[in-house]
Design a protein around this nucleic acid. Sequence first.
RNA 1: CGGAGUGUAGCGCAGUCUGGUAGCGCACCUGGUUUGGGACCAGGGGGUCGAAGGUUCGAGUCCUUUCACUCCGACCA
Length: 417
Amino acid sequence: MRFSKLLIPTTKETPNDATLASHIYLIRAGYIQSVGDSGLYNYLPLGKKILDKVRAVVKDELDKVGCQEVSLSFVTPQSLWEESGRAEEYGKELLRFKDRKDNDYLLSPTNEEAMVNLVRNSVRSYKQLPLNLYQINLKFRDEIRPRFGLMRGREFLMKDAYSFHSNTEDMKREFAVMEETYKKIFTRLGLDFRVVQADSGQIGGDGSKEFMILADSGEDDIIVCDACDYGANIEVAQDAKEGDSCECGASLRMTKGIEAGHIFQLGSKYSESLKATFLNEQGKSQAYEMGTYGIGVSRLLAGIIEQNHDDKGCIWTKESAPFDLQIIISNIKDEAQVALGESLYKSMRSHGVDVLLDERKDRFGAKMKDYELMGIPHAVVIGKKLSDNLVEFVTRKEMQKEEISVNEIETLLIGKF
RNA sequence: CGGAGUGUAGCGCAGUCUGGUAGCGCACCUGGUUUGGGACCAGGGGGUCGAAGGUUCGAGUCCUUUCACUCCGACCA
């Protein structure tokens, strides 16, 4: 795509209320835009592109292990939440409203009730189990104090999955499958993360694990072992201290994490309260054993930047980047630079490389600042050295600039992407 | 909900004490020069000063009421 045609409103100034790197850079680089200072955000073209890429990774890995994507209605009748008892429990975080006929509705903050309702309306027999259904769509939580940009907004994109089983063993088997699948997702996105023991909170149920992106700006305190894979949220390991011995013998370390995923062994809490049953092999009615699994997709974007940025801007990981490559034409008045930029752009596109061509009229410095701010992993700079038949290949992370001969650049790029 | 603060152009702010018809930087538009680290010159557009009421010849400024937002705490995840 061409920079001059895209809506990418980058700014030099930091938004007033932003303190986190992810908040500052996502806004300054023109990925998102805040809506009226109230924990709501618009995704601009590039932000939407990243969101779609991250979402695609999540979907790809879930589909591989047999999960099925659905889409539940965004507006949920409050009566479902009255059946489960959560209409009372949930308090003001739940945004409730009435329609013109005075019926009560709410905007879903999570969808156990709605998904159980879907299943009880369509599944009858143990032969249809197990079943793992998920959706990736907007959730709304009327947070007391939304802050930190995408990290804790009121409206956010969440992947929520729910599995249905005829017995506990099978539910635990699926829980393990989901743990492995989440590890693959977080790894593919290039994140440094830990899986920790967690509190089940108001969702309810027994076993629960959180996926923590390690970052100093995280809101959760966790204790981890660097020798083995033990980790726990401080909420469940209250007595643990820095330096305590792990079961494996090594010493434990305290650190901060961003909760980006959470998986629960739910049991039959919701299937019982909502009377969702199937006929088992003996022909008897039985409530489903359930698991529930969430990933904060929009929070992942923030998490990626919290973990991957420098003082100049974003540094996207390979699978999250809005483009594979940016081609920067230094001086748009130089016909040779423009000619090479255009031909390289055309060639990369024909090889399936997702490339952004910066052919704006601005000066070199402004284009480089924007490149660094936006954080696309690699760039080719076509500039002054073109007279010596050289261009530069730039790696965003280290800001390394490698001089490459014009004759070799195309082959090198094709090999790389 | 308790405490503190802020609302003036798209963004960031000054002006309020001491009332006289709104200004600066960035961004934007036009023309020209410039093009390796966020260029320069000239010209230009954009405001119910959060809202309502009051005092006054006159209110961004003073008074009353109200709304919104931010920060700290509590709460929540």
